[in-house]
């Protein structure tokens, strides 16, 4: 007997597969970027059904929000259409299939979804302990926050430093200042110039 929850998750995961095939097949990079945003949104939906609300929140905000915009920015540096591919080599396909099979084989070791016998549930120092004692030890009703900011505050510090390092790297690569003084564009100029519109249609605006 399949529960409603499993059914919904199955449908959402099937959507993910369809979207992935769409991303691979599409030559229009713009559409592919939009599909990656959609992918994150559907994944976030699946996380909500699995009761991982905080993860879903992050996935929706970062995956379908910010990274879509950054991808669009990256596409605007190049062309909106993928170059025609040459003949795909058989060797590459064999390697991809072998890697995929290995990854799937790796997941066979993992506990079943929702299993009560998974190590996270049965280990005396994990899930149950946090659920029972975090209110007395840390306080916040949202135990995810307790774990994230207090029990494993050191890891979160590391994550913040990673975000910081990524920001510094992008700043030093791209810079924050405009190269050309485009500030000259008058803010209230009557910009009713249709030719400019035509010319820009395949670029990002």
């Amino acid at each position: 007997m399949i529960s409603m929850e499993h059914l919904i998750i199955g449908v959402l995961l099937a959507f993910l597969v369809v979207i992935t095939i769409g991303i691979i097949v599409l030559r229009d990079l713009m559409a592919a970027v939009i599909l990656t945003g959609l992918y994150s949104l559907v994944a976030a939906g699946a996380f909500v059904v699995m009761d991982a609300v905080d993860v879903a929140f992050t996935e929706a905000a970062v995956g379908s929000g910010i990274s879509t915009i950054l991808f669009l920015g990256a596409v605007s540096f190049t062309r909106a259409e993928q170059k025609p591919r040459g003949n795909d080599s058989w060797l590459a396909i064999v390697f991809v299939i072998a890697t995929g099979a290995l990854l799937i084989y790796g997941t066979l070791d993992m506990p079943r979804y929702g299993s009560a016998e998974s190590p996270a549930q049965t280990h005396p120092q994990l899930g149950k302990r946090f659920l029972e004692q975090s209110a007395d030890e840390v306080g916040p009703p949202n135990i995810v926050t307790s774990v994230l900011a207090s029990y494993r505050g050191y890891d979160t510090l590391g994550e913040t430093v990673v975000v910081f390092a990524a920001g510094i790297a992008v700043m030093s690569l791209l810079g924050l200042k405009r190269r050309r003084p485009e500030e000259e564009i008058p803010e209230h100029a009557p910009e009713d110039q249709p030719p400019e519109l035509e010319q820009d249609t395949d670029r990002l605006t």
């Binding site: 920015g73 505050g153 920001g167 700043m171 791209l174 924050l176």
Partner: peptide, 25 residues
């Protein structure tokens, strides 16, 4: 937790905006 989350929030906000500035400029 308040201070630490505020720190995370400030860094993430400003990194995301500077990524946008970096690409957009």
């Amino acid at each position: 937790i308040f201070a630490v989350e505020l720190g995370v929030g400030i860094t993430v906000t400003s990194v995301m905006i500077s990524l946008f500035y970096g690409f957009a400029s």
